[in-house]
Nucleic acid binder design. Structure first.
Lengths: 207, 207
DNA sequence: CAGCAGGCTAAGCGCTCGCTCACCTTCAAC
DNA sequence: GTTGAAGGTGAGCGAGCGCTTAGCCTGCTG
């Protein structure tokens, strides 16, 4: 195995920042377990077992099971925000930037749906403080998409009745990909990304 | 209290078919608890407590905690399917029927989001047999929406590149309403229904 | 009134959970 | 070669879980 690790669903992980090695293995194991069964149905024994360690080893690197979820959520949301930022603040027309944002955001949710599922659906299992921190990142994601749509409306590219509602719908559509997407299904992440970019452009009145 | 019961989020329930009274109270309590905390984080003691009964009372009316989820899922999916059927098989053009289907489906997810959340997001907590039964209902929901879209394509009302993918996206958009909608937010269920019907018509190229 | 079936509870069983603790190994520093 | 920090284990604690059981009310039947 090289230094670039692979998760079960083939996504090149962004967990490189997590050290030491044992802590990263535990984190990756937790992502897979949480995605499969949900946070509450996952036991610390299961996580440690997947990482090839004893149950007690988990507590050398993490204070609680919830800290694992918190770390996963923060890193995952940071990655999602980065993807949207790059697209939103890139060059090109609002149309091009929106298509870019949607297709790359959807590709991330489809290709890394193990991570995305945890990040998007296990939020409520966090305590109030951690939850508030993550919700702040989420609001920033919303702001990036809204900025593109507002640009498009201002330039006359888009025809949108309700900017806030449309922004929410676009993000909602992308996020829900993590719920239904499967690599066994008929589409690749790239294909869903392209399809969704087209659908979203129609939603904002392009074409 | 009248015979028409109200859940915490103000939805007039469709639980009238559940008898006797104690069994219905337990079911409504379970819906609320599952929606708030998720199936695995909900205890049978919590459900019984919300229904004003002792923990043991639950097992007079239901064999297991999972049977509660199963019953909720089946009744909820049947209701969702009925909503789509009425819209899909009503009179009018494909455009009118699609708008009707989306707005009423979204209204159900928003107004009864307590129920909808359980129905749409706790499916994986069911055992294989129950899960398969519910997935069959879900496929019927998909078929109803797809039929409308195919009608619209055939009549020339719609311009759709990928009927299967667009059907999935439409349903996905509607379902995700249950995740984010809140009565404390800026919209009523009716408003979201109208907004989403407009967005979906744009997705299928009605313009 | 006695008999009894259905609905309910208090108590608690067996189990697994998140988490801890006493102890062991490895290895770099001196 | 000794030491001490870092990383790991096996055993197990207290708590809470889903679920059961013995027995108690209540109201209908004869």
């Amino acid at each position: 195995m090289s230094t670039a690790e692979e998760t079960a669903d083939g996504q090149t992980s962004a967990w490189g920042e997590v050290t030491p090695d044992a802590a990263r293995r535990l984190l990756v194991a937790a992502v897979e377990a949480f995605a499969e069964r949900g946070y509450h149905a996952t036991t610390t024994r299961d996580i440690a077992g997947r990482a090839g360690m004893s149950p007690a080893a988990l507590y050398i690197h993490y204070k609680t099971k919830e800290e694992l979820l918190h770390r996963i959520s923060r890193i995952g949301h940071a990655k999602a925000l980065e993807i949207l930022r790059v697209a939103a603040r890139g060059e090109g027309t609002a149309t091009e930037r929106l298509a870019d944002a949607v297709s790359s955001f959807v590709r991330w949710h489809a290709g890394g749906r193990t991570t995305a599922r945890v990040v998007q659906y296990e939020l409520d299992s966090l305590g109030p403080d951690a939850r508030a921190e993550i919700l702040a990142l989420r609001r920033q994601c919303d702001a990036e998409v809204r900025a593109i749509i507002e640009d498009g409306v201002a330039s006359g590219e888009f025809d949108v009745l309700d900017v806030k509602g449309t922004t929410l719908a676009v993000l909602s559509l992308c996020i829900d990909v993590a719920r239904w997407f499967s690599l066994d299904g008929p589409w690749t992440p790239d294909e869903v990304g392209a399809l969704y970019a087209d659908l979203v452009l129609r939603m904002v009145g392009v074409g």
